[in-house]
Simulated assay, not measured.
Amino acid sequence: MNILQINASARREGANSTKVANSVVERLKAANPTATLTLRDLAVTPHPVLDEAALGALFTPAEQRTAEQAARVALDDALIAEIQAHDT
């Protein structure tokens, strides 16, 4: 089992949603001792908003992207791959 926990609260400490998520993950790991956990905290590492520049990058053919556009698409692709690599 590969667990992806995404914390999205602006509160880095003491957020109720994080407490609930941590509790769920603890129970999952207790039931599945070999489970792996990836923690993505959007307060610590926020993902850039989907704006006009990002859309432009996504709709530009890969071979025509600027370095900035390629980096943005690579970031989105990496996060999509992270989600796909987890089953819980």
Rank of each mutant, 00 (worst) to 15 (best):
Q5L: 12
Q5K: 03
Q5E: 04
I6Q: 02
I6M: 09
I6H: 03
N7V: 10
A8E: 10
A8N: 01
S9D: 02
S9C: 14
A10E: 00
R11M: 14
R11I: 15
R11Y: 04
R12W: 14
R12E: 09
E13P: 11
G14K: 07
G14R: 03
N16Q: 09
S17L: 15
S17G: 04
T18Y: 04
T18H: 06
K19V: 11
K19R: 08
K19E: 14
K19Y: 10
V20G: 07
V20C: 01
A21C: 13
A21R: 02
N22F: 14
V24G: 01
V25S: 05
E26S: 08
E26H: 03
E26I: 09
R27I: 13
L28Q: 05
L28S: 01
K29Y: 08
K29E: 06
A30S: 07
A31I: 15
A31E: 05
A31T: 04
P33Y: 00
P33I: 13
A35S: 12
A35R: 01
A35D: 08
A35N: 07
A35Q: 06
A35F: 09
T36G: 09
L37K: 04
L37Q: 00
T38F: 11
L39T: 07
L39R: 01
L39I: 09
L39N: 00
L39F: 00
R40H: 03
R40W: 15
R40N: 09
D41F: 09
D41A: 11
A43C: 14
V44D: 01
P46I: 11
P46S: 11
V49S: 06
L50P: 02
L50C: 12
D51S: 06
D51C: 10
D51F: 06
E52V: 10
A53D: 04
A53Q: 03
A54T: 08
A54H: 01
A54K: 04
A54R: 06
L55P: 05
L55F: 03
L55K: 07
G56C: 15
G56H: 09
G56S: 09
A57C: 13
A57V: 15
L58H: 04
L58A: 10
F59R: 04
T60H: 03
T60F: 14
A62P: 11
A62Q: 01
A62N: 02
A62G: 11
E63P: 07
E63F: 13
Q64T: 12
Q64L: 15
Q64W: 13
T66V: 13
A67H: 02
A67M: 15
E68M: 14
E68K: 00
A70H: 02
A70S: 08
A70I: 13
A70D: 08
A71P: 03
V73K: 02
V73T: 01
V73Y: 00
A74W: 04
A74R: 00
A74H: 05
A74T: 02
A74G: 05
A74N: 05
L75I: 11
L75E: 02
L75Y: 00
D77M: 14
A78R: 00
A78L: 10
L79T: 00
I80R: 03
A81K: 02
A81L: 12
A81W: 00
A81Y: 06
E82I: 10
E82D: 03
I83P: 06
I83V: 12
I83W: 01
Q84V: 15
Q84R: 11
Q84C: 11
Q84E: 08
A85G: 07
A85I: 14
H86Q: 08
D87P: 10
